[in-house]
Amino acid sequence: MKPKESMPKIVIYEQKCKGCELCVITCPKKNLRLGQKINKKGYHYIEIVDLEKCNSCGLCYQVCPDVAIEIWKDK
């Protein structure tokens, strides 16, 4: 349950993610992908491609069925 990045725009709770890829097909910047690592449930989980490119639009949060994504924004 630990946040993946210390100064996040997007936090992916990797143990909650099931790698369904709804967020991957929704992200307008194609900035998410399925990672190589496996969580304790046995699923590959989502990772962010380039943190700089993320503009915190929150569409990935909107479609995530497992509430595995948290979005942060500057003000």
Partner: peptide, 27 residues
């Protein structure tokens, strides 16, 4: 930095047992 989207208070921290991509978790 400010949290804009996060787990609502009315949900617990328990992981869903649904299949990947299921609409139940969304609703």
């Amino acid at each position: 930095m400010k949290k804009v989207y996060c787990k609502p208070e009315s949900m617990t921290d328990i992981e869903h047992k649904y299949c990947p991509g299921c609409g139940h978790g969304l609703v």
